[in-house]
Design a protein around this nucleic acid. Structure first.
Lengths: 232, 232
DNA sequence: TGAGCGTAAACTGTCAACAATTACGAGGGT
DNA sequence: ACCCTCGTAATTGTTGACAGTTTACGCTCA
């Protein structure tokens, strides 16, 4: 229900694009898991196309950092360790911070109203209160996405929506939040929205960065404690 | 003399990689100008390879945002208007800001010494004092590059070095600084370095962002006055 | 003379076959 | 038992030919 307007407008009917979209979808759905090898002949046969377009599709996925390629050795679905995910989230803090700053100056009142309604919906959502998974995967990213769009910086929008979010979605199972985190995240969202409504760029950027930093810290805490649990 | 250690370690000997590197070089050297069409047959013949590898090379360049492709219409060297360049510089401010913050905590004393020596060299450079072009294209980017490296965030390094800087270099003729700007930029560099030496993350990020913001403002001022001059 | 149409040339997209490289496993030697 | 070597199979890299689409040119007709 959320990102239905994000999908490409069927951008041409050539086979390489079709293969690209099907592969992207397969990776996102977990059908092709991180680290798994992408055999050209297998995939070409599966999709009923030749190796040429499929190779091009893989190249495009490589450009989006969804697959890694080694010469004469094939392509694999990208597999990030915890440190790389943390690196990614640091970049996200920076980019969404500046996006929120820009949005503070450019966002339209109607969009502000929409965000307000969104947060009200979150507040009434039982999974937010109880601390379950909905928030992280769905509503949270949607809230961020709308603010990024409001920045008006097309390249920034593309970087976050096409590159960053797809990677984060791919590793969302390792981004599960600590108990009680969703409720706190909702409060931080409210702070972001308040800064946007006040048209305060400094505060908007600061609030968004604090929010993402807290989210990252919560995750890294889980990871470290999990690691300790594995040792014990 | 500057970025010699940046070049790839001859990464394999397959033709598509070779073509990719040659094309990238040709674009960077201005041999292929922004907006110019990339004919597959022409380039394939010129490089003595088939259209397959060349197509793959173009796809890789597209992934790096150096060329844009339209279905059934071919690829063109990317051509950015002033607004797009400004968008790019806003993103640069954000990313280099966070890179500088990270560097404040991680940069090694030897590298700090190196940066110090670099700025001394800039100060004695006549072109900096007189306000000519050297600073913008060469030493300035090198100074930034070293700090980005010191951030220790591999993905951030890759984003800035491979994606951002190549694009900026491509449009460097439109990034010419205002008279007197190099001297001021040198002072701002000193402020950045001082914050790094003080191991102050907040100040380091703030100094770097101020520096890039001033640089951007100087450019946009030039652009607007140039536009006015053209009208007059 | 100019607008519209049709054909042809040029170009990108796709395919199947061939070449080169790598990975795997059997065999033999130490 | 372990390791090295060689050969075979599987996989990626490359090529030239073919198909579909777009573009440009010239021709016809008002």
């Amino acid at each position: 229900m959320a990102n239905s307007d994000v999908s490409q407008p069927l951008m041409s009917a050539n086979l390489s694009m079709l293969a690209f979209q099907r592969l992207e979808q397969a990776i996102m759905a977990g059908e092709l898991q991180p680290g798994e090898r992408l055999s050209e002949v297998t995939l070409a046969k599966r999709y009923g196309i030749s190796r040429g377009p499929l190779r091009e599709a893989i190249g495009r996925l490589e450009g989006r950092n969804l697959v890694e390629r080694v010469a004469n050795q094939g392509a694999r679905v990208v597999s990030l360790d915890q440190a790389q995910i943390m690196d990614l989230l640091v970049i996200r803090e920076s980019l969404e911070g500046i996006a929120c700053r820009l949005a503070a100056a450019r966002i339209k009142p109607a969009e502000l109203k929409r965000l307000h309604g969104m947060l009200e919906g979150h507040a009434q959502d039982a999974s937010v209160v109880s601390g379950k998974g909905y928030f992280q995967g769905g509503g949270d990213l949607d809230f961020h996405y709308r603010i990024v769009r409001a920045s008006g910086n097309d390249r920034l929008i593309k970087m976050l929506d096409e590159d960053m979010y797809s990677l984060l979605r791919l590793f969302r199972q390792r981004l599960s939040t600590a108990p009680g985190r969703p409720a706190q995240a909702l409060e931080e969202h409210r702070a972001v929205l308040a800064a946007l409504e006040a048209r305060d760029p400094d505060e908007a950027e600061a609030a968004m960065r604090t929010h993402i930093r807290n989210s990252r810290a919560s995750i890294s805490h889980i990871i470290s404690t999990t690691a300790e649990a594995e040792v014990a």
